[in-house]
Computed example of a mutant assay.
Amino acid sequence: MLVKNNKDSIIYFFRSIWLDITAIVIYAVLIGTLDHVTILRQIAIPLPITGIMGTIVALLLAFRTAQSYERWWEARKVWGEIVNDSRTLLRQIKQFLPELEYQRELKEFAQRQTIWCYALSESLRKIPFSEKVLHYLEQHKITANNIPAELLNRHADQLALICKTYQINDNKQVQIDTTIARLNDAMGKCERIKNTVFPKSYSLLIHFLIYVLISILPFGLEDNFPILEIFLTIVVASMLIGVEKTAIIMQDPFENSPTDVPMSALSSVIENNIKEICSDTAIPPLAPDNYYYIN
């Protein structure tokens, strides 16, 4: 998950496009050379046609990139809401329960909310639960197809019990239940983003048009400067492939890659904040030593 910018992020990006760039370089050098020594020299595509094709590709790429970034940014905003609501939930439990009685209940809510954050992030990435999550689930004998949803159900069940036990008034109960409902809504938004697949036909269309443009580009440039023709073909084609790959990377923010929404980092922040709320003691934040890390 992306935590801070680093030269490694650039390396990761180039690793994802190096095959395309290699193919482009080979094609540009080959066609650029043959275009000056063979019958290919007679092939000339008017530059306006190449320009029209380039404009179409640019418009499609701009729309694709905007939609992909919107998905990534929506996912990041949802996790920002999770951070805020996690803090709010524990603060409400701490303030609304009787001072002499809240410690045990607060600890249970704190543990469960922490595990919920880690379980949600790991479920979205479709990876096995971490040891921390598995230990909690085994300890509390929790089994369900949707573990994060079941943990929120346990929140609601415990809330009903403590409201009955400690005579919590209805207004305070509604406030806590509303916070739990917002966490449930945030989980649903994440699942919607995860399960909504970007149209494959649209991706294939853009990819096809990019390679059509790359194929005709050398024949639309002047033949007087072969080195310049090869250079321009490589540069223009690489820019188009780079923009397309950027959109592809951003469109799936929960795919367990370095460009994901930083769910592990945010879960650690939530855990530290919850510990501070429970203990009233400042806890140093965790600082990852790489530009991303995966739990």
Rank of each mutant, 00 (worst) to 15 (best):
N6Y: 06
S9V: 05
I11F: 09
S16C: 06
I17P: 02
I26N: 02
H36V: 06
P48A: 01
I52G: 01
T55G: 01
L59Y: 07
A62I: 13
A66L: 08
V78T: 15
V78H: 06
Q92E: 13
Q95L: 14
E99H: 06
L106W: 05
L106N: 04
K107F: 09
T114C: 01
Y118C: 00
R125A: 14
K126R: 14
I127R: 15
K132V: 08
L134W: 08
T143L: 05
N145W: 03
N153L: 08
H155L: 03
D157Q: 13
C163R: 04
K164Q: 13
Y166H: 15
I168P: 07
N171M: 13
Q173N: 10
V174P: 01
R182Y: 06
N184A: 15
D185P: 06
I193G: 01
N195F: 03
V197E: 11
P199I: 12
K200E: 10
L205T: 12
L209P: 01
I214Y: 00
S215V: 05
E229K: 15
F231R: 12
L232K: 12
I234A: 07
S238A: 11
M239K: 02
T246E: 13
D252C: 09
F254W: 06
E255H: 08
E255R: 14
N256M: 06
T259E: 15
I274G: 09
K275T: 10
C278G: 13
I283N: 10
P285W: 07
D289S: 12
Y292D: 15
I294P: 04
